[in-house]
């Protein structure tokens, strides 16, 4: 849903490019959408990895001061790896933000919640009640609505 329709349908240039098979024009526009999807996926992976690292550290860090606790957290390999993956997603995000309105692109990151919630279920055996499943469905509906609401931006 994110990777399709890589061309701004609201602009004359977008319509022209839609009619052109020219690979240069198509790939140029697709990169923005690959960047949105990529940053969402990498952020979700990063968050899950950070949580896995914190789960490993939490017993040793339970009774120390806040600052010490943070230092323990930042020394966890999985936390660092998670932050690294998150960082890569962030570079993609900066690229994507420079191509769209922030009020359009930011809510699309809600797909993160869907991915991380499912990840919490599969990786950490966190229980997902029926209401949360409904929420996942509504988020997906909302992101689809956002796509069809259009990405037209003020320049």
């Amino acid at each position: 849903m994110i990777t399709r329709a890589p061309i701004d349908p609201g602009s004359a240039a977008g319509m022209l490019q839609a009619a052109q098979p020219a690979s240069a024009a198509i790939s140029r526009f697709q990169w923005c959408d690959v960047a949105i999807l990529g940053s969402v996926l990498l952020a979700a992976c990063g968050h899950l990895m950070i949580k896995a690292g914190l789960n490993a550290a939490i017993s040793t860090a339970a009774h120390v001061l806040l600052l010490e606790r943070l230092l323990i957290y930042f020394r966890q390999p999985l936390v660092l790896l998670g932050l690294g993956i998150y960082g890569l997603g962030t570079v993609m995000w900066v690229f994507a933000v420079s191509k769209h309105d922030i009020s359009y692109i930011f809510p699309i990151t809600a797909l993160n919640y869907v991915l991380v919630t499912l990840g919490g279920m599969f990786l950490f055996a966190e229980v997902i009640p029926a209401k949360r499943w409904l929420g996942i469905f509504v988020v997906i509906v909302g992101v689809t609505m956002m796509q069809s609401a259009g990405r037209k931006s003020k320049r």
Binding site: P107, Y113, T117, R132, L134, G135, I136, V138, M145
Partner: peptide
């Protein structure tokens, strides 16, 4: 809608 969905989650 997205916010509502996430509140439900």
């Amino acid at each position: 809608v997205i916010t509502l969905g996430v509140i439900l989650i």
